[in-house]
């Protein structure tokens, strides 16, 4: 197991290194610099600005400096906000994003599992059809469309929750719900399939035959076994949430990294784009690793150390 973890960590570092290199050189290919409206500046002033961002050095030197700084957690200085470090900007803004993501993940999976459970237990009933249909809707309708509907009907028309900004828990409600729809749908569909399969297996029949009541069977034997494969969808779900926050934060004006990222793209603030890209990539790889490891811990039948 230890060997497997070390091997995965090495792969993780190689991937991160490649992503950092790729982003660096792609950004160098792009037009645009901190001197976008530089006509007003004199030659000397331009030179000072270029010097400040280290853009006078040859590209290999810039690359070396970037990598050395990166290894120390320094992502450079933003073009957009004078003298502000990208690391600080990201750190200031990661809170709301994390809060939204975690709330949506927890609420989404729990509600989704309940929906899937109801679907499976009342298989082929109107209840099942309704919840399956809702799950297809939730999986299909893009989160930004759903967010628009919520904002208009719940926020504007009914006025139950604030439409935008970030000033208290009630401000998190609409963005969280918009984000949670996708996890609800995915978890519900997955839970339904797994639960149907588990409830049809021999050990469930045995438990029933031995006199365990229906509720006990569902909780103790059914649910527990159906939960194991659910871990596999947690990865895609977490990644879906990361994509979702980019738009949802914009729609609800949440001061998170997603909103910052989209703004940075629109004004060519490369240090922030690179920093956020690396952060997203890191979180992605890290989540996949944790899920793979969890999978082995929870289900002993899977021997990760032996690999494929």
């Amino acid at each position: 197991m230890t060997r497997y973890i070390i091997q995965r960590l090495v792969y993780m570092i190689i991937t991160m290194f490649l992503i950092a290199t790729l982003t660096f050189f792609l950004m160098k290919l792009l037009p645009g610099s901190p001197l976008a409206s530089a006509d007003k500046l004199s030659e000397e002033q331009q030179a000072v600005v270029l010097e400040k961002y280290g853009l006078n050095d040859p590209i290999p030197v810039q690359y070396y400096n970037y990598m050395v700084n990166l290894a120390q957690g320094d992502l450079g200085i933003s073009f957009q906000f004078d003298n502000r470090e990208v690391t600080t900007i990201i750190m200031d803004r990661i809170g709301p994003s994390m809060q939204l993501g975690i709330q949506a993940m927890v609420i989404g999976t729990i509600l989704g599992m309940l929906l899937g459970l109801v679907s499976a237990l009342y298989h082929n009933s109107p209840l099942d059809y309704t919840s399956t249909f809702l799950a297809v809707l939730g999986q299909s309708i893009p989160s930004f469309v759903f967010a628009g509907l919520l904002q208009f009907y719940i926020g504007v028309k009914l006025g139950w929750f604030p439409v935008a900004l970030w000033e208290g828990w009630e401000y998190t409600v609409l963005p969280t719900v918009s984000l949670a729809i996708f996890p609800i749908a995915i978890a519900a569909r997955f839970m339904r399939t797994e639960m149907l399969e588990v409830m049809g297996s021999d050990y469930i029949v045995t438990a029933r035959a031995k006199g365990v009541n229906k509720f006990g069977v569902i909780i103790k034997h059914g649910l527990r076994n159906a939960l194991i494969p659910l871990i596999t969808v947690l990865g895609p779900l977490a990644i879906g949430l990361m994509t979702g926050t980019l738009v949802i934060e914009n729609i609800f004006a949440v001061p998170g990294i997603g909103e910052q990222f989209v703004k940075a793209i629109n004004v060519n603030d490369y240090p922030i784009i690179m920093g956020t890209t690396l952060l997203l990539a890191f979180m992605f790889i890290f989540i996949i690793l944790v899920i793979d490891l969890l999978y082995g811990v929870i289900d002993p039948r899977i021997r990760l150390a032996e690999g494929e």
Binding site: Y11, M12, I19, L22, L26, I239, M242, T277, L280, F284
Partner: peptide
């Protein structure tokens, strides 16, 4: 596979 789709597409 290690590079997230979203990041690759945006780049």
């Amino acid at each position: 596979v290690g590079i997230p789709n979203l990041v690759l597409i945006i780049l």
